[in-house]
Amino acid sequence: MIDRRSVLKLGMVAAAPSLVAACVSNGGVEFHRNTKRPISSTTRFDAARFAGDWVIRGEFVHPGQKPLYGNVSVEHGAGGITGITLSNAASARERYDARMSTPGRITVGTPPFGTEYWVLWVDADFRTAAIGTPSGSFGWIIDRSRTGGEDRIKAAAEVLAFNGYAKDRLQTR
């Protein structure tokens, strides 16, 4: 089985077709969302307010895996979201170019290997957000702070569940 970090990188860089095929075959990744459930991105997305630093407060993991958590920095430019930088506790940083074709839908990577990450929900003050992929390969709850806001974290988890994500795979802090 391919780990979730590899799946995230698949969407963020051009990959060989055989690797993509491995991800969706029976021996590949088991995703975290029931794709028979409808999914939608938020209609009140504002790229300028979404830009900035976030802390990963919730992450979908497979049984026996531990969350990676870490931080996300979102860049904003004339075309909306223009870049995403991920960093982990070991200070490893990875920056990816991004673009938006629709508000709340951020594409990372180059077609045909680009992946669209949907902002499913963000609170009114842009402090907490739920992000996922239509395939269910990925899901996060991000927040502006490392602690607090338990009501918003709970609301984000409920939005992910409403959009078909497996509640039992969500690990939060």
Score class of each variant (00 low, 15 high):
Asp97Gly: 14
Arg4Glu: 10
Leu8Pro: 06
Arg173Ile: 13
Arg57Ala: 09
Ala22Met: 08
Ile56Asp: 01
Arg146Met: 10
Gly11Trp: 09
Glu94Cys: 08
Trp118Glu: 03
Trp118Asn: 03
Asp151Pro: 03
Ser25His: 00
Ala14Glu: 13
Ala15His: 14
Asn34Ala: 09
Lys36Ile: 00
Ala22Asp: 09
Phe45Arg: 06
Lys9Asp: 12
Gly149Asp: 08
His32Gly: 04
Thr43Leu: 11
Glu59Asp: 03
Ile84Asn: 04
Arg146Pro: 09
Asn26Trp: 00
Val72Thr: 11
Glu94Lys: 11
Ile39Val: 14
Ala98Gln: 07
Val159Pro: 04
Pro103Thr: 09
Thr43Pro: 01
Ser73Met: 00
Gly70Phe: 01
Glu30Gly: 11
Ala156Val: 04
Thr107Met: 12
Ala124Asp: 15
Arg49Leu: 14
Tyr69Ile: 00
Thr85Arg: 11
Arg93Met: 13
Gly109Asp: 05
Gly136Phe: 05
His62Met: 01
Arg105Thr: 12
Phe50Cys: 06
Ser137Arg: 02
Trp54Gln: 02
Tyr165Gly: 06
Val20Lys: 15
Ala156Cys: 05
Ser145Phe: 13
Ala156Gln: 03
Ala92Gln: 15
Ser40Pro: 04
Glu75Gly: 11
Arg57Ser: 04
Gly139Thr: 08
Val108Ile: 14
Gly104Asn: 01
Thr85Asn: 02
Pro63Ala: 09
Ala15Ile: 14
Arg49Asn: 13
Ala124Ile: 02
Ser101Asp: 15
Trp121Thr: 10
Gly79Ser: 13
Gly80Asn: 07
Arg95Phe: 05
Lys36Ala: 13
Lys154Ser: 10
Pro38Tyr: 03
Gly164Thr: 07
Leu19Gly: 01
Arg4Thr: 12
Arg105Gly: 02
Gly52Val: 03
Leu160Ile: 08
Val119Phe: 06
Arg99Trp: 10
Asp123Val: 02
Tyr117Met: 09
Ala15Met: 14
Ser135Gly: 11
Gly148Val: 11
Asp168Phe: 00
Val74Thr: 02
Val61Pro: 02
Ser87Lys: 04
Ala155Asp: 03
Ile39Trp: 08
Ser41His: 11
Val29Ala: 14
Met100Phe: 01
Leu86Asn: 14
Val24His: 15
Thr35Trp: 02
Gly28Ile: 10
Tyr69Asp: 01
Gly70Cys: 08
Thr115Cys: 07
Glu116Trp: 04
Val72Trp: 05
Phe138Val: 10
Arg152His: 12
Ser25Ile: 09
Phe113Thr: 15
Gly149Ala: 07
Ser73Gln: 13
Arg152Ala: 15
Leu86Asp: 02
Gly64Ser: 00
Val24Leu: 13
Ser41Tyr: 04
Met1Asn: 12
Asp53Tyr: 08
Ile2Ser: 13
Ile153Met: 05
Ser25Thr: 11
Ala48Glu: 07
Met12Val: 02
Val29Lys: 13
Ile84Thr: 05
Phe138Cys: 02
Ala166Lys: 10
Arg152Thr: 10
